[in-house]
């Protein structure tokens, strides 16, 4: 096994150029995923799927300016809620924000490039009945297109809603972290194309250290809302091979706040099924005993 590699996507410096989406499509020859005008934001891609392996989310928010902190509350993204983030969110270290007046709400624009998380404990891989999904020498998770029989089980198993089935093709597809490029010693196409280094590729341990430093720096600048997502090896999926620095709650970006690999509970499920199977046999036996007197 080679060293575990991964992505660190620092959304605080994403400029929403979608170069990652395009580079991914070009390198991997991913077909179009429909041309849908979604009328919600600059995002007409929608989300990850069989034919979308990088997806850039756009969230426009109106948040309290310094000194106008209200309680963080629930709201839908895109409604420009005045209270969508907690107190002090916009408090810059030096209070610099062009045009911002204390007490007045200010705009902020979140962008984030989403991708398959290449989980340490990957549900798609666990539930695949054919062995089409496998873990590579780089500890990434890849579908073998010549083995997949399109059973579709991986699709609802993924806690992030990443993998999809192409209905015209019949098979499941998702990000391979450019397995072919990795084998050739190149970085994945999205990371290569990212003009701001929002998408960083490298050995996972190095990326995690770099990410911790970046969060510390941002907190030092007063951006206390910066937090890592998917970086904790003790979380419900054992940590992600592709993790993120987010500027708001994960669900605002369409990410699950506390994902779990469903197979964690598999032994319990089989236990309950065994109980039900035994009860079934008992009921049937009783049905015949009764008749015999």
């Amino acid at each position: 096994m080679a060293e575990r590699v991964g992505f660190f996507t620092d959304t605080s410096i994403c400029i929403g150029c979608k170069a990652c989406e395009v580079a991914c499509k070009e390198w991997n020859d991913v077909p179009d995923d429909g041309f849908v005008f979604r009328a919600t934001s600059y995002d007409n891609t929608g989300g990850l799927g069989a034919s979308t392996w990088r997806h850039v989310a756009f969230i426009e928010q109106r948040v309290p300016a310094p000194g106008n902190g209200g309680p963080g509350g629930p709201s839908g993204a895109g409604e420009l809620p005045a209270d969508s983030v907690g107190p002090g969110v916009e408090t810059g270290a030096d209070g610099e924000r062009p045009g911002a007046v204390v007490g007045e709400p200010v705009d902020r624009w979140l962008m984030a490039s989403d991708v398959c998380k290449h989980c340490t404990h990957a549900a798609c891989l666990d539930v695949c009945p054919t062995g089409a999904l496998f873990r590579t020498e780089f500890h990434t998770v890849v579908v073998q297109a010549d083995v997949c029989n399109g059973c579709g089980y991986c699709v609802p198993a993924c806690p992030y809603g990443v993998i999809g089935r192409r209905e015209d093709d019949g098979r499941a597809f998702k990000c391979t972290m450019c397995y072919d490029r990795l084998r050739g010693g190149l970085e994945p196409a999205c990371a290569k194309a990212c003009p701001t280094d929002s998408i960083q590729f490298g050995p996972l341990d190095e990326l995690l250290e770099r990410a911790e430093r970046r969060v510390t720096d941002l907190h030092g600048q007063g951006r206390t809302e910066a937090r890592l997502y998917g970086a904790d090896p003790n979380d419900g999926v054992g940590g992600d091979g592709a993790f993120f620095l987010l500027m708001d709650d994960p669900e605002v970006y369409g990410l699950p706040p506390d994902p779990v690999v469903t197979t964690r509970d598999l032994p319990a499920m089989w236990g309950w099924a065994a109980g039900a199977a035994l009860s079934m046999a008992g009921v049937m036996a009783a049905a015949f005993l009764r008749r015999r007197r």
Binding site: G49, A57, A77, S84, V155, E251, V252, Y253
Partner: peptide
């Protein structure tokens, strides 16, 4: 009460 990305699903529905 909860927040989401334009009300879009987080997970994929069974196909």
């Amino acid at each position: 009460e909860f927040r989401s990305y334009y009300g879009q699903p987080v997970i994929k529905a069974p196909v």
